[in-house]
């Protein structure tokens, strides 16, 4: 076993996920503590230029599996390609982003390698020469600290939580092409649907404006959408709003929706049920707008406004416009 940290640098359509940079930044520190270096692996098709980006965020070496057959994500081919690489380079730690792709890939890869997996981690450190991973359990009602007694020590990392270092434009990395293992691709992605409509996904957003039952109906999301547009934010929703059919499930935040960690979460007409809080309470700053001063969401909100959202939200939007124009 080596001392290196290997980061799976996820890309779709040639665009790297931000969590790749977050993992490289964290990985560099872990690698320093292990006496090794941080390396990255790219899997896909048409990946020119991406190794340079990864180098700027600390990767000393980038393995590249560039093959037309890997253009769309394949659970089996990505697993087999990465398993072959891991067998060859024997990293001490293997990190994957806890994205839709990473959460699909990592368990399959872990089982293929016969190793343990710490899922959706929010902190990583080296303790006694071993990875110590922290991850929320019970929808964030508790945190578990975990060690892995198999190699590589594998973890998926929750996006938007770990800090990113400033890129170093002068940095470079060794690039090493590796073979794609595509012998078995039974499950095949044939199409990506619904993408490219310009909507930001709540799971990836820096700012989220969310609406709950308090918006009163599908049209009640209009002021929420307007504010979101002004802020370049994603639109979130409570389950009550989703179950009422006012907005699609993709927007739902919470225990049976998405877990989000934006810098700013604005909850409008949401009471703050435990299952909703589970999905958003690690947001850096929370603003709540609710006409009931007793709503539980106010216990969690950094800033609370007691009032009618149909008055407050447009007033906020107007003020944001002024402030952003300054």
């Amino acid at each position: 076993m080596g001392n290196n940290v290997l980061v799976f640098a996820e890309q779709r359509d040639g665009i790297l996920k931000k969590v790749a940079y977050e993992m490289l930044t964290a990985g560099a520190k872990l690698a320093a503590d292990l006496g090794g270096s941080v390396e990255a692996v790219l899997v896909g098709s048409g990946l020119d230029g991406l190794p340079d980006m990864l180098a700027q965020y600390g990767a000393t070496k980038v393995y590249v599996a560039d093959d037309p057959a890997l253009g769309l994500y394949s659970s089996e081919a990505y697993t087999d390609t990465l398993a072959a690489l891991a067998g060859q380079v024997e990293p001490a730690v293997l990190l994957v982003g806890a994205t839709a792709m990473g959460r699909d890939l990592a368990p399959r890869l872990a089982a293929c390698l016969g190793v343990g997996l710490a899922s959706d981690c929010t902190a990583l450190e080296i303790d006694g020469g071993q990875l110590l991973a922290t991850r929320p359990i019970f929808a964030g009602k508790a945190l578990a600290q975990i060690k892995l007694n198999s190699n590589p020590q594998m973890a998926t990392v929750r996006p938007n939580v770990l800090a990113v270092q400033e890129p170093d434009p002068g940095a470079s990395a060794t690039v090493e092409p590796i073979g794609a293992v595509t012998a078995q691709m039974r499950a095949r992605v044939v199409e990506i649907a619904g993408a490219g409509e310009g909507e930001i996904d709540v799971a990836e957003a820096d700012i989220i404006v969310s609406g709950g039952r308090g918006v009163g109906g599908p049209d009640g999301f209009e002021p929420i959408r307007h504010l979101a547009k002004t802020l370049g934010a994603a639109v979130g929703a409570s389950r009550a709003a989703v179950d009422a059919g006012w907005i699609e499930h993709a927007h739902q935040v919470g225990q049976t929706g998405k877990t989000v960690t934006p810098n700013l979460y604005i909850a409008c007409g949401i009471s703050g049920a435990i299952q909703h809080l589970a999905g958003m309470k690690t947001s850096k700053v929370i603003v709540a707008v609710n006409k009931d001063p007793e709503a539980p969401i106010f216990k969690l909100a950094n800033y609370g406004i007691v009032g009618d959202l149909f008055q407050v939200v447009p007033a906020m939007e107007e003020e944001f416009k002024k402030v952003l124009a300054e």
Binding site: V115, G116, L117, A118, L132, P136, I137, G140, K141, A142, L143, A144, Q145, I146, K147, L148, N149, S150, K281, I286, V287, A288, P293, F298, K299, L300, A301, N302, Y303, G304, I305, V306, G307, D308, Q311, V312, V313, A315, M316, E319
Partner: peptide, 30 residues
């Protein structure tokens, strides 16, 4: 292949703060 070393309570968030005032005024303040 995984050992839970410890289970901890989640970090506390600072107590929430209500911004007083009429709705538009509170909105501006926030």
């Amino acid at each position: 292949k995984l050992e839970i070393v410890a289970v901890l309570p989640p970090p506390e968030r600072p107590a929430g703060r209500i911004i007083e005032g009429e709705p538009d005024e509170a909105a501006r303040k926030v």
